[in-house]
Design a protein around this nucleic acid. Structure first.
Lengths: 340, 340
DNA sequence: TTGTAAGCGTTATCAG
DNA sequence: CTGATAACGCTTACAA
């Protein structure tokens, strides 16, 4: 792999000093228009490409942003990254993307790889296993800008983007109640997760608000094994005191519910109504179509990126403020919660 | 952002020369065990992290691999990247991920950003718009290792990973014929795409093999606008000589078909049988469940990565050979092609 | 076995 | 306005 021509060589061709060429290319004001033009045209002719590492070394910035997500095979995270990229690419930033596969150990490894300046900032959503957050604290204390979205880490005083999880879950539960559900179950991944807690609160409050005493049996913690979850939900549905409504706090649990229902004599929505947080592209092609709470994923990514770009490009910018910014999700009612 | 301690500072603490410390940390053989231990323990104590850019500058390698895909919101590509990451992360490589959004101009921009050594290699699947390939040729000629998967670029003499597209399409079409289809349509994105051409060949040959003369009207080129495609397919289904079978060469076109069918009086599989190349996670939750040809996406990613790692880590490795490696896809028959 | 010094390709400082 | 020089943090000849 032969790299292109260097600044020094370009300068030699032009019979100019490297510093002059550098200034011309960086559009310094203290350069004559004439030489500026000459330099630029020669640079184009020879297809000069500055070496990013020399620059990074010199300027102590990488022009890269690390994005850490719990899983790639998930429309929500893919959309967020699209949103981030749409902004950052305009500013010459590159995206290093890492998946933790919901594994804290992997998350720690990745985070430790980012301690050395390879990325100028981190945008992340924590794994569902993450309870010890020393690795994140560590990173924060080194002064690396971190920005959380969706699954945030409350203990780190930085900017966090979330959706109105409490309200959405409240509304979703209320909708199930309005459709006649009496016993609503809440499916979740892990109580450690910020989104789980908020959504669970919304669920509980909606029940209490309707004069229903929540049963702790109906708040169900699932795993990452789809097969296990399907098994668990099947048993739930076959139990004497089965629920007649389900609020899935993440998409995969709604899908497991659909699979589980197939293994029983029940049907959605007649015997069981289902609503789920989900950014899948085809909720209306499921059988029955799925009532969803959809998060503004791309907008989240864009907002994250905008704040970050401001922080990274404006000189002497203050630290990312310790605030939580909430964007609204959207409830779309479909057949899975229909009364017929 | 204060970066950590430097090698020089670490050396000062140890009262050793930087070069000695460097050698100790890089496990050079020409260093006494005693100092090696001392250095390593001190490095750990002070949490020394080598500056990646200094190293990159010096060694002229980035320890990054660029992955360019046409879209992120697509399980197939997400799975491939998971596969790549599973291998490359073990070898200390970082993944720069770019999406072209099926736009050649974006693809060109991204490619041009990678001319300066920011990535040690590129793994990519070209956009469906890509017919002018000068940007890729350019990159190849600079000596940057490029590896294509799925949507490959035949003109660039490098290693390409594909699936047995011809055979899969042949088998898929044959299956439709066996299920009684007489008029089978082929839905595609763009004739420029390697996968389109192969899959189309398989489709045509299966028809001919059954003594059916292909109708060119039934080979349908769609766009990237789902709404347009649904419209197009709806019209097709409402036409007098409508097809009774559809082979979708990419998943999104099968989904558009499902949407289109909803707008007609027809039903799948009674009036129209559908089969599609697809890596979606829930083909069996669609109504009706979708017969799919699933590509071994994660394996493709892993194989790409293995070849690349070998090329990048072994000294004096030859160029990536100009060969096409094919992995088999899997046909899974579901309700959408059922006879009842 | 360890130290000295040069150099990777930039940019910033200081002279001219 | 332009040029010389140092420095960013690391590795590797070459010297000792």
């Amino acid at each position: 792999m032969k790299n292109g021509i260097s600044l020094k060589e370009l300068a030699a061709r032009l019979k100019l000093a490297p510093s002059t060429v550098s200034r011309a290319l960086n559009d310094s004001y203290e350069i004559s228009e004439a030489t500026k033009k000459k330099v630029i045209s020669m640079a184009e002719k020879l297809n000069y490409q500055p070496n990013p590492f020399a620059r990074s070394l010199r300027e102590n910035k990488s022009k890269s942003i690390a994005v850490i997500i719990p899983e790639r095979i998930n429309n929500f995270f893919a959309q967020v990254i699209d949103g981030i990229e749409s902004i950052t690419s305009e500013h010459g930033y590159h995206l290093l993307v890492y998946s933790t596969h919901e594994d804290v150990e992997k998350e720690k490894k990745i985070v430790s790889l980012l301690q050395n300046g390879r990325a100028d900032a981190i945008v992340m959503s924590v794994s569902s296993q993450t309870n010890d957050i020393s690795h994140l604290k560590n990173l924060y204390e080194r002064g690396l800008p971190i920005l959380f979205f969706d699954r945030v880490c409350a203990e780190i005083p930085t900017t966090k983007f979330i959706t109105n999880d409490y309200e959405s879950a409240f509304e979703g539960t209320k909708h199930l109640l309005q459709q006649g559900c009496k016993r609503i179950a809440f499916l979740m991944l892990s109580m450690e997760l910020s989104i789980t807690r908020e959504r669970h609160r919304g669920y509980l409050d909606a029940l209490k608000n309707a004069g229903i005493e929540p049963e702790s049996r109906l708040s169900i913690c699932c795993s990452h094994q789809d097969a296990e979850n399907i098994q668990l939900i099947t048993e739930l549905l076959n139990s004497k005191s089965r629920p007649d409504g389900i609020l899935a706090s993440v998409e995969k649990l709604a899908l497991s519910t659909y699979h589980a229902v197939k293994k029983t004599d029940l049907s959605i929505p007649d015997d069981l109504k289902v609503i789920s947080f989900s950014n899948m592209s085809i909720p209306n092609l499921l059988n029955p179509s799925l009532t969803t709470i959809t998060q503004p994923a791309e907008a989240i990514g864009q907002e994250c990126a905008k704040i970050l770009i401001k922080k990274l490009t404006k000189p002497r910018q203050p630290d990312l403020p310790n605030e939580v910014i909430s964007l609204p999700s959207k409830l779309t009612i479909r057949e899975s919660t229909l009364v017929r």
